[in-house]
Computed example of a mutant assay.
Amino acid sequence: MTFESTNLEQTEHFLINSYAPMRIGSSTDDIRASVDRIGEPGVTIDQNEFAFEMSYDVDALGKICLCSIESGAIADHQVDGWRDAESFGPGQLLSFTPPDRSFRGRIHNARYSFTMVDPSLLARFADADRRIELLDHHPISANAAAQLQRTITHLRSVLAEPEMGGSPLVRASAIDYLVARVLETFPNNAADGDAPTPVAAPPAVRRAKAYIDENAGSPVSVGEIAAASSLTVRALQYAFRRHVGMTPMNYLRQTRLDRARAELTAADPYGPDSVTSVALRWSFLSPSRFAALYREAFGETPSQTLRS
């Protein structure tokens, strides 16, 4: 499907029929809009170009919408439920909006792609039969975003070329690979339940772990860890579960326990260091709680470690 127009009203009518009820506007009469869509039920990939200044106010799409910006900018993009509006430019890939949220903003002479995915396709990759949601609109890392972008480009070529995409099996496999990449790129709830097996951590998780390692002896909040990793708190929680196998605060607690054990192991049992002083040094304010956590982690009490 290909659409081109120099008329704002005609463009709005087409966008309503192609996406969802919306209102668009512009302060210029120089309207140049084009949409080139390819796809099949469940997944579509659009190449959009709006070579003018255009405002938009759009109802919920009912689809997962991935946006990859090639040129121009999308400004003041605000989704219902977001705390702040954001702006995006060339090279950025984001989850544009959850399926059930309306959104609004402005397009500045932008060329970008929209990859629309039926949310039901994500359920095939879930640990349980439930609704799968993306929990943050930012990818977990630049590398993950780049891999997803390559997957979108490949899928578009599969769907566009009869020689490549003529086989239903090839098309279905390519779509499954896209969905798997989406779940690897954005924080999501597909792995809720048992903690997943840890895999190679993305840069944001490594930044969070480095911050914890450097500040384990100081009072640290999950918000401070999230800020150091450039993730939201919710995205940080799910990134840690996926890549570390525990929550950020559990990782902080284990780091403190490991440091305390190292000190107790090296300490002179008749010297100035006591179990209580070591516990306080690593932010365990309750000696009884420290002893219980320590025994659970290492199979012996802190006093036994100190005496040995």
Rank of each mutant, 00 (worst) to 15 (best):
E4K: 13
T6G: 12
N7S: 11
N7E: 14
Q10T: 11
T11K: 05
F14Y: 15
F14I: 04
S18V: 01
S18N: 10
A20S: 15
M22G: 09
R23Y: 00
I24Q: 00
S27Y: 06
I31E: 08
R37N: 02
G39K: 04
G42R: 01
G42P: 04
F50E: 00
S55D: 15
Y56G: 03
L61F: 00
L66P: 03
C67P: 03
E70H: 10
S71G: 11
A73S: 15
I74V: 15
H77I: 08
H77Y: 10
Q78L: 15
V79C: 00
E86W: 06
S95N: 03
F96E: 02
F96C: 02
R101P: 01
R106M: 06
N109Q: 12
S113Q: 13
T115P: 08
P119C: 06
F125I: 01
F125S: 05
A126D: 13
A128G: 13
R130I: 02
E133P: 00
L134M: 07
D136R: 04
I140P: 03
I140N: 05
S141W: 04
A142M: 10
A142K: 05
A142P: 03
N143L: 12
A144V: 04
A144K: 09
L148G: 04
R150W: 07
R150V: 06
I152S: 00
V158Y: 01
V158A: 00
L159A: 07
L159F: 12
L159P: 02
A160V: 02
A160R: 08
E161L: 14
E161R: 09
M164Y: 10
L169V: 02
S173R: 07
A174C: 10
R181Y: 08
F186R: 05
P187Y: 00
P187G: 05
N189P: 02
D192L: 13
D194R: 06
A195G: 05
A201Q: 15
A204D: 08
R207C: 11
K209R: 15
I212S: 01
A216S: 14
G217Y: 02
S218D: 11
P219N: 11
V220Y: 04
V220S: 03
G223F: 07
E224N: 02
E224F: 01
S229H: 12
S229I: 09
L231S: 02
V233K: 09
Q237A: 02
R241G: 08
V244Y: 14
M246F: 10
T247L: 11
T247R: 07
P248S: 12
Y251C: 04
Q254W: 12
T255H: 09
D258M: 07
R259D: 13
R259W: 04
A262H: 11
A262N: 11
L264H: 00
G271N: 06
S274R: 08
S274H: 03
V275L: 05
S277Y: 12
A279N: 11
L280K: 14
R281M: 14
S283M: 13
S283A: 13
L285R: 13
A291W: 08
A292H: 12
A292V: 09
P302V: 09
S308V: 10
